[in-house]
Write a protein that binds this DNA or RNA. Structure first.
Length: 264
DNA sequence: ATGGTTGGGAGCCAA
């Protein structure tokens, strides 16, 4: 089973990219973030024609939005918490039928957190920290099994998940309050699938800012997108691929897709 | 130290 996570930064704008990705790779499951499309306007039929008949999504006007597209049957998980008391379209989950039984897929879009890394000065940063604390506590209380957690978590936790550890320590996405909380969340029941095959100190990025003339040459990237597995699924993991070339497609998202292959 | 770009949707706000 191939599973992709991708912050697509507007699904409707980038439908041609989704079509190209699915034609080239035919993943079984695609988790999207920042779809930026309200549910009634979701391009249901277009996605279905790409081969994805099984859908679960939550979108809103303008911002956020997450979606799970699947070639395999799925059942939406309905009893999820309202993180930080907001219905922000930042989390969906579904049980996907594989050849060897169901796998639960969690798809998250964690708040970016604004620019100032101080929860007292910046409400968005406080929201980000609170969001991660709540998710970690919830998974500790509900230990996951046969589960995959993916998404744009908007945090690069390790030193070589950013182009310069030292220069980014005070930049939102790589500050200690964030990276500590993210690792505590992961340790509530998951393992880092991307770093399983590509361990530190190899640099590993999934996002490159639009604000660089030549993203590949400057290579000021960060690993903001993640794939976590419960330990019972780790033996089935056979490959992780960061699809960097997508960053060179015409008018790309600033995030690239990451693909995990599981022998299930 | 600063500014650099993109998307949504109609002003700027968010990233």
């Amino acid at each position: 089973m191939q599973l992709v996570t991708w912050n697509i930064n507007s699904l409707r704008l980038r439908m041609p990219h989704l079509a190209r990705l699915t034609a080239e790779r035919r993943p079984h499951v695609i988790c999207l973030q920042e779809t930026k499309v309200p549910n009634p306007l979701f391009p249901h039929e277009e996605v279905r024609q790409l081969g994805y008949a099984h859908l679960h999504y939550q979108g809103m006007k303008g911002y956020n939005g997450v979606a799970i597209l699947s070639r395999l049957p799925l059942r939406a998980v309905e009893d999820l918490p309202l993180w930080c008391g907001r219905s922000d379209c930042r989390h969906v989950a579904a049980d996907v039928e594989t050849g060897s039984g169901a796998v639960r897929v969690h798809n998250f879009y964690v708040p970016a957190g604004g620019d100032i890394p101080d929860p007292l000065q910046n409400e968005k940063f406080a929201h980000k920290l609170g969001f991660i604390e709540e998710t970690a506590a919830w998974f500790r209380k509900h230990p996951p099994r046969r589960s995959v957690l993916v998404g744009d978590l908007n945090i690069a936790p390790l030193a070589h998940d950013v182009w310069s550890h030292k220069q980014l320590l005070k930049i939102v996405s790589h500050t200690p309050p964030e990276t500590e909380r993210l690792l505590a969340w992961m340790e509530a029941g998951f393992q880092d699938a991307m770093r399983h095959f590509i361990p530190e100190p190899t640099a590993l990025f999934t996002w490159w800012s639009y604000r660089n003339r030549d993203w590949r040459k400057s290579n000021r990237g960060r690993r903001l997108d993640h794939i976590w597995l419960t330990p019972d699924l780790l033996p089935a993991l056979t490959d992780i691929s960061v699809l960097k070339d997508v960053r060179d497609w015409e008018r790309p998202s600033d995030h690239v897709p990451v693909c995990a292959t599981l022998a299930l």
